[in-house]
Simulated assay, not measured.
Amino acid sequence: MPKIMLADNLDALRGMPDGHADLIYIDPPFNTGRTQRRTRIRTRRTSHGEGGDRTGFQGARYETTAVGTRRFDDRFDDYLAFLGPRLVEAYRVLAPHGSFYLHVDYREVHHCRLFLDDLFGPDHLLNEIIWAYDYGARPKTRWPAKHDNILFYVKDLSNYTFNVDEIERIPYMAPGLVGPEKAARGKLPTDTWWHTIVPTSGAERTGYPTQKPLGILRRIITASSNPGDLVLDFFAGSGTTGMAAHELGRDFILVDNNPEALEVMAKRFESVSGVRWEGLDLPDGTEAGAWRTR
Rank of each mutant, 00 (worst) to 15 (best):
A7N: 08
L10T: 02
A12H: 04
P17D: 10
P17L: 05
G19Y: 00
G19S: 13
H20Q: 13
D27E: 06
N31T: 09
T32F: 07
G33I: 12
R34G: 02
R40S: 10
E50N: 10
E50D: 05
G68Q: 03
T69F: 04
D74A: 04
R75P: 01
D77V: 10
D78F: 05
Y79A: 04
R86T: 10
A90P: 01
Y91W: 15
R92T: 11
R92N: 10
R92W: 08
L94E: 03
P96I: 02
P96A: 09
S99H: 03
S99P: 02
Y101P: 02
R107L: 12
V109I: 08
H111D: 14
H111N: 11
F115P: 07
F115Y: 13
L116K: 03
D117N: 15
L119Q: 02
D123L: 14
D123S: 15
L126H: 12
N127R: 11
E128R: 06
W131N: 02
D134L: 09
G136Y: 12
R138P: 07
T141M: 15
W143I: 15
H147K: 05
L151R: 09
K155I: 12
D156W: 03
N159E: 07
Y160V: 08
T161A: 02
N163S: 12
E168S: 14
E168Q: 10
M173D: 15
P175I: 11
P175G: 11
K187H: 04
L188S: 10
D191K: 04
P199W: 14
P199Y: 13
E204H: 06
Q211F: 00
P213W: 00
P213E: 02
I216T: 12
L217Q: 02
I220W: 00
T222F: 09
G228K: 07
D229H: 15
F234K: 01
G239Q: 02
G239H: 04
A244P: 06
D251I: 01
N257M: 11
N258H: 13
A261H: 02
A261N: 03
V264H: 00
V264S: 02
A266C: 12
V275Y: 07
V275T: 13
V275M: 09
R276K: 15
W277R: 01
P283L: 09
G289H: 05
G289T: 08
A290T: 15
A290S: 13
